[in-house]
Nucleic acid binder design. Structure first.
Lengths: 184, 184
DNA sequence: GCATCTTGTCAACAGTTGTTGACTTTCATC
DNA sequence: GATGAAAGTCAACAACTGTTGACAAGATGC
């Protein structure tokens, strides 16, 4: 009982925590190893280097996310819960935050965009049907997340209040109700 | 005629170009000096260091932006033109892109958020009136910019087309038409 | 002509980054 | 108990970061 996790597992946990919260470029391998109480050399040994460790935190991020086929109302609920809200541990930021934090990185930016940006968009497309509305819906999701979490704007971030949820819903449903007039 | 610009001016121009396009952390002083064809030491001499040079590219970014008091329709036009579209040189990214690119930086992130995020929000608030709608409007602006420029999502980025503008308008006006029901 | 200030150049600095190879320890298997 | 693979430790590496001080050239003022 109370199995002590292996060095590899502790490294992975610390990496997901730190990389997601502060960004790939802003975390050094020494800090990472210190947080995991592990020798630095093990990062290269187990994951091939800093970049490999970061990739390991990315690959299974979507594993437990399942979007049910449902109406617009329920979809808004699910999307907000899954992508915008922070995970259960209360420290690691949401998937969207991580994406936005690392999307511009010189080393891993392209990978993050391809792996999660496109993947998330495809999921929403399959769920919503029309690609246009899916893209707009995702843009709304991104905008609110950026405004609240990245820029910390006043007037957006009132998590848990009914007002915040009403704002969210209004914009989401505007995105979902949009139909363009060109060929389909 | 054809005045050759001083080293200080070339440095400032190269800094605005490179910092805004690739982010503060992803540009080294050596690359900066090389692009401006200037000795590295002059960065510290003239601007007090890399950070000071970056700040110099920030301070006057809002100098030429003036939002007129107008209706919702014209406001959408102005906002899109001023904040989302790229400047005239066609290379330097928009103000929003620069904000989003550097908002998470460990060194200058807080400054960028405070100087431009808050400032832009205050401008929109003064213009729109209701802080709630201004925040939502700004979130919509951010979301579209992120989706198009940062994540390069398909389905959003069709600049110059009527369809793209229609999407923009629909979401913007949804943001502007929102009213919350709590106390004001 | 001399002094002074600006403008620019050069080489070196100390600090941090990610990575690696040699080493010891641990532990299971024969 | 001997063998050998796995797990972990240590010190050093080369590459890069931003910054600085000493120095030279040119313009300006008296």
């Amino acid at each position: 009982m109370a199995e002590i996790p292996s060095a590899r597992d502790r490294l992975l946990a610390a990496a997901r925590q730190l990389f997601w919260a502060r960004g790939y470029a802003n975390v050094s391998v020494r800090e990472l190893a210190g947080a995991a109480e592990v020798d630095i050399a093990l990062i290269s040994r187990y994951f091939g280097g800093k970049r490999g460790l970061f990739q390991a935190t990315l690959t299974d991020a979507f594993a437990d996310i399942e979007l049910p086929a449902c109406g617009a109302e329920a979809l808004v609920d699910h999307a907000v819960r899954l992508f915008v809200e922070a995970p259960r541990d209360g420290v690691t930021p949401s998937l969207l935050q991580m994406m936005l934090m690392n999307a511009h990185d010189a080393d891993v930016g392209a990978e993050v965009r391809a792996l999660h940006g496109d993947r998330l968009q495809k999921r929403l497309e399959r769920l919503i049907g029309a690609p246009d509305r899916a893209a707009l819906f995702m843009a709304a999701l991104l905008g609110l997340s950026v405004a609240e979490k990245s820029l910390r704007l006043a007037g957006i971030a009132r998590p848990g209040t009914a007002e915040y949820e009403a704002q969210l819903r209004h914009m989401m449903q505007a995105a979902l109700s949009y139909r363009h007039d060109s060929r389909d």
